[in-house]
């Protein structure tokens, strides 16, 4: 098991990529805090599924944009499991990925940007601020931020979403620079279009096909593909990797 007895927190873990990451981490031996904002039932389902294979997990409600709620959640998690080793910032403000109804650059207003920045960057910021003292105390920790390969290749220009994810990458790198000396690594995972998830259902078949055409590995990412990369970055295997962004998109983006 790659992360045996480690304590992990995955935000936005009630479904999609977040749920897959939570489950994978649990399978690899971690105690997983499954964070959700609204979907308690879905989060409980994830926890229960983890328990079916004798994994350890617990659901935690918190709006990642709210510092008090985040602080309370992290403290509770650290208290019940004795620390916090792995944080996966996966949550974001609600977003509809629909190529047909998306807002163009001239339709996107600052509030749209702000909303995405709040979910992706402020959310990650809140979580990291709360988790950092625990990780410094342990002189180790893994912070993993989920970005998107749209920041390198905006196949569909979801302006507000992509801008926020790019900001999250900048956040990742500068955080890595300051936390390395404490033994804490900070990395990003950049998924390509991941199917099936709730976010990608509205992406039309032709867009999916065109992405597949451009992808060397000739398929879309699955939630498990992303979860595997996250587990790697959370494990001992990545002990000397920090400030990196790992593209998980079958080679669509190469850099």
């Amino acid at each position: 098991m790659m992360v045996k007895n480690k304590v992990a927190l995955v935000t936005g873990a009630s479904r999609g990529i977040g749920a897959a990451i939570a489950k994978k981490l649990a399978r690899e031996g971690a105690f997983v805090g499954v964070n959700f904002f609204k979907n308690q039932q879905l989060a409980e389902n994830v926890v229960n599924e983890i328990k079916t294979f004798s994994g350890q997990a617990e659901a935690f409600q918190a709006d990642v944009r709210n510092p008090e709620q985040v602080q309370a959640m992290v403290a509770q998690l650290a208290d019940s499991f004795g620390g916090i080793d792995i944080v996966v910032n996966n949550a974001l403000s609600h977003y509809t990925f629909n190529p047909k109804t998306r807002k163009t650059a001239w339709e996107t207003n600052w509030d749209d940007y702000q909303q995405q920045l709040d979910g992706s960057v402020k959310g990650a910021y809140n979580i990291c601020q709360s988790a950092m003292p625990f990780m410094k105390e342990q002189m180790s920790g893994r912070l993993i931020n989920i970005v998107s390969n749209l920041i390198d290749f905006p196949v569909i220009p979801y302006h507000d979403y992509t801008t926020a994810k790019m900001a999250l990458l900048g956040f990742t790198r500068s955080l890595a620079a300051d936390l390395g000396s404490f033994g804490i690594t900070v990395n990003a995972v950049s998924p390509g279009l991941t199917y099936p998830t709730d976010s990608s259902v509205e992406t039309t078949e032709d867009v999916r096909e065109s992405i597949i055409q451009l992808t060397p590995m000739r398929r879309l990412a699955t939630p498990d593909d992303i979860a595997n990369a996250v587990v790697f970055l959370a494990s001992e295997g990545s002990s000397f990797i920090t400030g990196q962004c790992l593209n998980i998109d079958g080679g669509l983006v190469m850099r």
Binding site: K136, F182, G183
Partner: peptide, 12 residues
């Protein structure tokens, strides 16, 4: 305190 933590990581 952070000095102590950082020192520990450095000693490691």
């Amino acid at each position: 305190k952070q000095f102590a933590q950082l020192l520990a990581a450095e000693l490691a």
